[in-house]
Amino acid sequence: MNDRIKTPLIATKDLSVHYPLRSTKLFGPPPVVRAVEGVNINIAPGSFFGLVGESGSGKTTLGRALLKAAPITRGEVTYNDGEVNFDLTDIEKQDLQEYRRRAQLIFQDPYAALSPRMTVRDIIAEPLEVMGITKSREETDQRVREIAAKCRLNLEHLRRFPHAFSGGQRQRISIARALVSNPKFVVADESVAALDVSIQADVLNLLKDIQKEMGLAFLFISHDLSVVAHVCDYVAVMYLGRLVETAPTRQLFAAPRHPYTKALLSAIPSLDPDDYGKAEKLEGEIPSPTNPPPGCKFQTRCRFAVDICRTQEPKLETEEGHDVACHRWRDLMEA
């Protein structure tokens, strides 16, 4: 493998995002929400990188931090697409503008986020105009038409208002808007969560096609592991602000190492009614990130927890390109 390929597009080192809360106590430090804690992540150019975990695990916050849309409390985030490279923790205003063009977010529903008085054309064109990317209206229209066609929206669609569209079409509008500035990195946060299954596949296939064609990298955030299994080539599992397991998709689904990943997989409702009762039920809920338990963050729900889990936080170990943070993953794999 040559070095160019190995250079990640996005790399973080010990990335943490903390939100201080208003103090409710008279004494002592104010409580802090540790939404993201010590995350090391490498996203290769052109990859489809999945991020999964229960709600509250910090997925959205991590995605936003990578777009420099959440405060970075500690650690590093670097971006390098071969043309430009930025250190997001120390970035000039002008560079940040350039970064915004290259790194984009797909809104879950553009209709909820945007003025209903804008036509689809205006919605898609807005990033170009705001960022001053195009020089003339003709150029803007040209770019909008190109990206719209890629997202299977025709000229007639561009003249209409978003409320006239179905969920699947709105999602395609949202995708076109995120891609119009020709980004290299796109965060798709629960982009198909609100769609019905019968049309979900359509949007997923579109994302895959576009990713290949435009050679961009996706951070695909989803609570649906079956979807992630089908579209992503790499998956990271998050729990209480930490990455607990990261691996190539097939490896992760064929041989999950972390007890949390196993439980998440097992909880997906099977289509076979005779599987009832076979799923491994995870008791309790994700603890509050304001007051995380000591040791392994998963110890309060893990049925394999032993003494060391309650005092020492496990470090990420890498074997065969598969990372896991669990004191017992080896003996559990043997068992």
Binding site: R250, L265, I268
Partner: peptide, 12 residues
């Protein structure tokens, strides 16, 4: 249309 976990190669 359901993405199946037992066949990751199946097209959606």
């Amino acid at each position: 249309a359901l993405p199946k976990l037992d066949d990751l190669d199946a097209p959606l």
